[in-house]
Amino acid sequence: MKLHIVIVEPDKDRARLMIDSLRPLGHAVTVIAEATGLARRVRDLAPDIVLIDMANPSRDTLEEMTLASGPLDRPVAFFVDRTDRDLTQQAIEAGVSAYVVDGLKPERVATVMDAAITRFQMFRRMRTELETTRRALEERKLIDRAKGILMKARGLSEEDAYALLRKTAMDQGRKVAEVASALVTAAGLLS
């Protein structure tokens, strides 16, 4: 029997990757991108499982559904299968949270969660790599600006300006980018 899985994910590319990993398992997948009216839309779709990024603040909206009264009006309950600590721990570390229909067989949930966790671990790696690249770029820009300031103010060559930045950083036990940032801020205040 195939499951109906709802993915709450505003990012199109991430949603696509999730679909690609869950459909081959034979499940039907629906994506909700909008935060507006989230609880009602999920309730209308009546899925077996809802997957949502733990970093998504709209997750709290889904908690409403755990309060529905009767077992049949209660399409979703929080995924803490208390017998499977490992899987839950992995899910939390990967940053994926899930709400499942009460009474759904744990092993059926487990296969879906395995696939979701793998994807989310990949998302996390991609996010970290992106962040590292972005920071490296920013630092590079800062250092270039600091070099420019030194070249102008002290008549240094580009090479000497960088050497001075690096020596100052080493003397103070700080990173070159930190010294550059301080210089750029100070120059901004003085200009």
Binding site: M54, S58, R59, Q89, S97
Partner: peptide, 15 residues
């Protein structure tokens, strides 16, 4: 934490 449910889970699961 981005949400109360996430903070609750972080607390429950020892993060």
């Amino acid at each position: 934490a981005p949400s109360w449910s996430s903070l609750r889970d972080m607390l429950l699961w020892g993060q």
